[in-house]
């Protein structure tokens, strides 16, 4: 009981501390200091050609961060792939009724369409490479859950997934290097002369859709690797 009270007290005092800090920060007068976010909002569409401002920040203004985050994910997938035992076994040992199997079979095409849509329209509507990649990763995950890990890895071998993941990462860097070829800086988009097109069309915003595709491929494959590695047992 005392231990629990101690824990509670610790959490509450930390919360109070942060609350005071946050309120202090918000009481400051900072009207003039938001020029960066205001610039993103007012000029983002003209400068990057992407209607979705989150995408324009993620894949254009701060695309370099995205490369780093994708690398973190690749590292995590690599760790889990070698840390978790190589031998396979079934996960729960559950067999489902035929309804589950049939439902999964019919669900997969829809998930694939949704994933592709989210990735391809990342610069026009909410979503983007990361979210779309997760949706795409649901396909192998669903296969592993219902039909078992053997079937899932027969359809998509771990090596295939690993190669796809690496191709996504290399593709991102190569797309960034396209700008270097034209004599501009790494990951430059509009400045390097890639046609931004009319904002709102599918093929617009220069490199952003292609970067989205690469990240989508990478994230999807990486998460599928992580999930299957977690499911394996000794």
């Amino acid at each position: 009981m005392v231990k629990k009270l101690y824990k509670l007290g610790l959490v509450v005092s930390l919360g109070m501390f942060l609350f005071v800090l946050f309120s202090d920060i918000h009481n400051l007068d900072r009207t003039s200091k938001n020029y960066l976010s205001e610039h993103y909002i007012s000029e983002g569409v003209q400068e990057t050609g992407a209607i979705n401002l989150v995408t324009s920040v993620l894949y254009d203004y701060r695309a370099f961060d995205t490369l780093g985050e994708a690398t973190v994910l690749l590292t995590a997938a690599t760790i889990l792939a070698f840390l978790v035992p190589v031998t396979k076994a079934d996960m729960l040992g559950t067999t489902f009724t035929i309804i589950v199997y049939q439902a999964t079979k019919y669900l997969i095409p829809f998930i694939a369409v949704l994933g592709v849509y989210v990735i391809m329209f990342g610069h026009l509507s909410p979503g983007g490479g990361f979210v779309g990649g997760v949706v795409m990763a649901l396909i192998p995950i669903l296969l592993s859950l219902t039909y078992g890990i053997d079937f899932s890895e027969y359809k998509l071998t771990p090596n295939t997934k690993k190669v796809v993941e690496d191709i996504g990462a290399i593709g991102f860097i190569l797309l960034g290097l396209l700008a270097v070829l034209t004599g501009n800086n790494f990951l430059a988009n509009g400045q390097a002369g890639f046609p931004l097109g009319n904002a709102g069309e599918l093929i617009s915003a220069g490199l952003i859709p292609y970067l989205n595709v690469m990240i989508g491929i990478k994230v999807g494959a990486g998460l599928a690797i992580i999930f299957n590695s977690l499911m394996k047992e000794q």
Partner: peptide, 20 residues
């Protein structure tokens, strides 16, 4: 956009990882 990422990743995938 953030809501979508939150829904798919935190509420969906991460929970799956935790359960496994």
């Amino acid at each position: 956009s953030v809501a979508m990422a939150e829904a798919v990743i935190t509420a969906g995938l991460a929970t799956g990882f935790f359960v496994i």
